[in-house]
Amino acid sequence: MFRKIMILVDEHPQSQTAIAQGVEVARTHGAHVVFLHLPPAYAFPMADMPGGGMAAFAAQSAEEFEQQTQATAADLLQSAEAEARSAGVASVGAIGPGDASVDYVVEALTNRGCDLVVVASSGSNAVVRLLTGDIIPGLISRSPVPVLICPLPT
């Protein structure tokens, strides 16, 4: 039924649940997996200064941030690909841009020919997910393929 499955991967522990369940679905269906990591966008830090003025300070430069996020992404994707390999599932990893949105994921699903997307749920309610920028509400309403939402095991 499924031939190519996209699994969204991040550094949160619940992502491991999505990886495990997505790889199992792929193994069962003989599907290939595309692991997609969406790194956070760089945010230039601002702080209040004495006297009521705002001043910018760089806790981490954009270059340092980019190096760190690329290293984190590489580690996460290598780990996910190793799990797929141990299950006998062919996979590839990809890194999206730091400002990726639901639009980017929908486009990636279409461009890569995926017929299922697997994403982890933090377990928070829909209002919290909307307020925190969680991608799940947008995927549910805009994905061209089925969305498998994996909650944390209880």
Rank of each mutant, 00 (worst) to 15 (best):
L77H: 06
G51H: 05
L139R: 12
A18D: 03
D75W: 06
D48E: 15
P45R: 10
L130Q: 15
L76A: 02
L139S: 11
A59W: 07
I140L: 15
H37M: 03
M1F: 03
D103Q: 06
A59V: 10
E24N: 04
A80D: 05
V9D: 04
G53M: 06
E64D: 15
I149D: 11
A71W: 05
C150P: 08
V34P: 06
V92I: 10
V106H: 00
D48W: 13
V117E: 03
G96L: 01
M1H: 12
P45G: 07
T110I: 00
Q14P: 10
L38R: 08
V118P: 09
M6N: 02
Q68G: 07
G30M: 00
E63V: 14
P45V: 13
S124F: 14
S15N: 05
D75Q: 09
G96I: 05
L76M: 03
A20R: 04
I5A: 12
P97K: 07
Q60G: 04
A56E: 14
P40F: 05
L77W: 08
E81H: 01
G52S: 05
A71H: 10
M6C: 09
C114I: 15
H37W: 03
E24Y: 00
T69V: 08
G123N: 15
S86R: 15
I149L: 15
P39C: 10
L139H: 06
A47W: 03
E66V: 07
L109Y: 03
H37I: 02
V102D: 04
L148W: 06
T28P: 03
L77Y: 11
V128P: 02
E64C: 12
I140G: 04
V147R: 13
E107M: 04
L38T: 00
P50I: 15
I5L: 09
A71C: 07
E24R: 00
F57H: 05
T110Q: 09
V9K: 00
T17W: 02
L139P: 06
A43R: 12
M1T: 07
E81A: 08
M6R: 03
A84N: 08
T28G: 03
Q70G: 00
P146C: 11
Y104Q: 06
V105L: 11
M54H: 15
F35Q: 00
L130N: 15
A73C: 04
A87P: 09
A47D: 05
L130P: 13
M46E: 12
F35L: 02
I95H: 04
Q21N: 11
L76C: 05
Q68E: 05
A94Y: 01
I19L: 02
T17R: 07
V9Q: 07
T110A: 14
D75K: 03
V33G: 06
T72N: 09
V118A: 01
V105Q: 10
H12F: 13
E107T: 09
G98M: 03
Y104R: 08
I136Q: 12
T110L: 05
T69S: 02
R27I: 01
A62N: 10
L116P: 01
L109E: 04
L148D: 00
D134I: 12
M54P: 06
V117Q: 06
Q14T: 11
D134C: 14
I95D: 00
R112T: 09
